[in-house]
Amino acid sequence: MDELTGGERGSAASVAEPVIATRGLTKRFRGGQLAVDGLDLSVPAGSVFGFLGPNGSEKTTTIRMLMGLIEPTSGTARVLGRPMPAAARTVLPHVGALIEGPALYGFLSGRDNLLRYDAADPTADPRTRGARVAAALDRVGLTPAGAKKARAYSLGMKQRLGLAAALLQPRELLVLDEPTNGLDPQGMREIRSLVRELAAEGTTVFLSSHLLDEIEQVCTHAAVMAGGRLITQGAVADLAAGARGRLVVSTPDTGEAARVLKERGVTDLEVGDGRVTGAAPKTSGPGLAELNAALVHAGVRVTGFGAERASLEDAFVALTGEGFDVTG
């Protein structure tokens, strides 16, 4: 964002300023491999932002650039309105992050791990350190295990401790990279409710995940990345609406139905057991009612007729065109 020059742009412009804004963010690793390619990401303030992408789509490299751990080859990144990594010292105390899983000192207790991370924060008040550590442990339900050595923690407990480290201070932005990895369903639910709770308090949450239903359940906005490029971003509802739904016709006369639909220009036809599906017609083409009439007119016994709404998963697959475990 360009600096404000005075009061006239003032409030209106500043309300819209995104919490994370990148422009042409690019990372080329030594050896010439292009990891992140011209990313223009915009995360609105107060949103729960889902960052989606198949494995290998360089989501983590992007997050590391946002956190100042990796220097971009070109392009700019602004976090909380300030340039990264130049303003890391002022920005990062307001950002809690869990990146590529937790990392702990195994020979220290959970509590001592948090004390260590808190000591590294220049804005953390040593006088309130003990209380804040206790509160963070409590928030993730680790108080009973606080004195236990971290190496004895289960994966889920380590994940919780990592989250506690991100919650040591009140944060403006929380960056969570695959926060439910290694958690049991109960733990996943807890994390989701924690995310909702934090969002309700006004914290912007940037949630990277490959679990679509997770994103659909908690996120207000999402971006999809594949092969180091940003495919799309926007409100989750818009993204799902963007993918075309499926036309579903239930009928015993599947062959005849498929022929009639094809004649009428319906594409991507699939004939199943007692049902024919195809891409829902565009608004410019023949309407649903017209198609139904054509089917009945051709003597097809239609027992069910309708359009299925597209899920985020449909949108995702339509955009990335590949399975989740395929590396980009």
């Binding site: 404000l4 003032g10 409030s11 300023e17 909380l80 300030r82 105390p93 804005t123």
Partner: peptide, 21 residues
């Protein structure tokens, strides 16, 4: 000066800085 108190509220998400201990 023009931004006033409203500006301050809008800035909430973009960089109040805690004092360095």
């Amino acid at each position: 000066t023009g931004a006033g108190a409203r500006g301050m509220r809008a800035r909430k998400a973009v960089g109040p800085v805690r004092p360095v201990s």
